[in-house]
Amino acid sequence: MLAMSFPNILCEQYKIMQKNTYPDTHDLMAVPPVMNDHQHAEDAGLTAVIGWVLQVGVVLSSVIIVLGMGLYFLHPAGRQQTTLMPHTLVQVFQGVLLLQPAAIIALGLIILIATPVVRVAISILAFALEHNRKFTVISTIVLLILLLSFLLGKGGA
């Protein structure tokens, strides 16, 4: 259900952002902006969406990290459990349910790490909405290589 409705949410957010970028125009989804030498006009919605994704990821992760650190310093009982460093997703989620500070911080870090990957995934949708086929393909290739490196458990820094 959540997965089904996500593209619609993005689409709505995208429309709002394009309207904000061009306050004088309406319904830019139906009439794509005229192409010009510099792609600012046509990429305006794209930059807004990418900027938004990055900001949400950064704010969400830092709030969770701050909460975890606050718990670590304020809750002495929780501090004992931090000797156990969670390093699998299951351990992290179990720890979060038990309100372990280290697990909550780890959750924030996971969101931070996932943000660039989500950015690439959202770029595919954003380029597709702009009918930019070349860059829809390019972003898809990047995401596939990323997923491949996760699957292989290898990859650079």
């Binding site: 990290i65 975890g68 650190m69 670590y72 931090t82 460093m85 969670p86 390093h87 699998t88 280290a102 697990a103 911080i105 780890a106 924030g108 870090l109 996971i110 790490i113 996932a114 943000t115 660039p116 990957v117 950015r119 690439v120 990047v142 990323l146 490196s149 996760f150 458990g153 290898k154 990859g155 650079g156 820094a157």
Partner: peptide, 24 residues
């Protein structure tokens, strides 16, 4: 960020990312 994210998963599962060091 994208290139680093690809390897961060590996570091995380190896336990090389210490939450209390990485947080600050």
């Amino acid at each position: 960020g994208v290139t680093a994210a690809a390897s961060a998963g590996i570091y995380f599962s190896r336990g090389d990312i210490l939450p209390l060091v990485a947080a600050p």
